[in-house]
Computed example of a mutant assay.
Amino acid sequence: MDIDPSRSSRRILIVTDAWRPQINGVVRTLESLAAQLRSWGHEVSFLTPEPFWTVPVPTYPEIRLSLVSRRTVFHFMARTRAHHIHIATEGPLGLLARRYCLERDKAFTTSFHTRFPEYASARLPVPEEWSYGYLRWFHDPAAATMVPTLSLRDELLAHDFSHLTLWGRGVDGNRFRPGPKTMFTDLAGPHLLYVGRVSAEKNVTAFLDLDVPGSKIVVGDGPDRAHLERAHPDARFVGYLHGEALAAAYRSADVVVFPSRTDTFGNVVTEALASGTPVAAYPVTGPRDILTDQRAGTVSEDLAVAVRRSLTLRREDARALGEQFTWSASALQFLSALVPATLQQRRLTKAG
């Protein structure tokens, strides 16, 4: 649907359990989306864990769950008088926002960002299908569930999800841009870079175990960092980087390696491409949707083969592909999927 993003100002409420100080793709996506929407004159408000007491998720302390009452959430949502309600996550805030909409017969949309079934089964003896059952129940009353890639849409359809619509991602091409190499100059080349959480579900070990020439650099932190540093003393772990330091790290790498098999998109991939750095990844959801031009990156079940090939690619071609991902295009897709909160959907009143 063709829409003029600035035709009329909308009040949009986004509910998310993922928020600062977390550093992840969900938070970056929502912040970038809001900035684009506000630049068009829309009023975007957030219901986040920020004002509430939180507790850490067992085995995953970086993620914290809000301790919040039904009364508080319902009062906040009523006070916003939002034209559109979007529930981004399936945690405590998302659950209460969903309940508010169903009890008030408010139409809403949701989005699918994270493979919690796979993450949960890696830590706990919980069958993936049990978790997918919960997620189906959560998203089913939504007028639309937004997904970042066509591959993920097909996967969720196979798990019996419905009313799925595409909401792609963008990248800040001014912040992440080609330029001279200014970091890692004391390390032997080529420079192979991983950016992201250092945790089991990110499959960082597959990167560190690669038998390829060069230096391996890990930007990020997480529960697996300490033991991976001990197991791989030749790799350099630099922790989280932000702003210009992160952009410089991308520019200073010869290849960005994305070893995850469980991400739903992979903002790291588009940030690398925008920086003019080719990417090596497995042919899974996210990378195979982004790396559609083999001149910009390589997907292969043999990650070492992907790295070696990507080292031969031109940085100009990586940048050209990265320029295709914009936050304006992403925000337009988001706007087109929203529904008026006042839309009366009879099936919503029958959902649990």
Rank of each mutant, 00 (worst) to 15 (best):
E271R: 04
L246V: 06
P287H: 01
R347Q: 10
T145F: 00
A200I: 08
D263V: 06
D317S: 14
D105H: 15
S8V: 03
M183L: 15
V26Y: 08
D254I: 12
L65I: 08
M1K: 10
D234P: 02
F207M: 01
T312H: 04
F265I: 04
V44I: 13
R197P: 02
W130D: 11
A248M: 03
E201V: 03
F74A: 15
L241T: 06
A272P: 11
L321Q: 05
L246Q: 03
R308K: 13
E62H: 03
S39E: 13
A35T: 14
A304V: 08
A34R: 14
T182P: 01
G286K: 12
L93K: 08
Q345P: 02
I217H: 08
S330Q: 07
L228W: 11
Y132W: 15
H242M: 00
H242R: 08
Y194V: 03
G239A: 09
V256H: 10
D140P: 00
L348E: 14
P56A: 11
V26T: 15
G133I: 01
P21R: 08
Y240G: 05
Y60I: 09
C101F: 04
V339Q: 00
S199E: 15
A274Q: 07
A206H: 12
A82V: 00
P117C: 09
F184I: 05
A280K: 10
T165M: 02
A296Y: 11
E50R: 12
P58A: 07
L102F: 09
A97P: 05
R7S: 13
L33Q: 08
G276S: 11
V44Y: 07
D302Y: 09
W40C: 06
V55L: 15
D302F: 01
Q36Y: 01
L192W: 13
V212F: 05
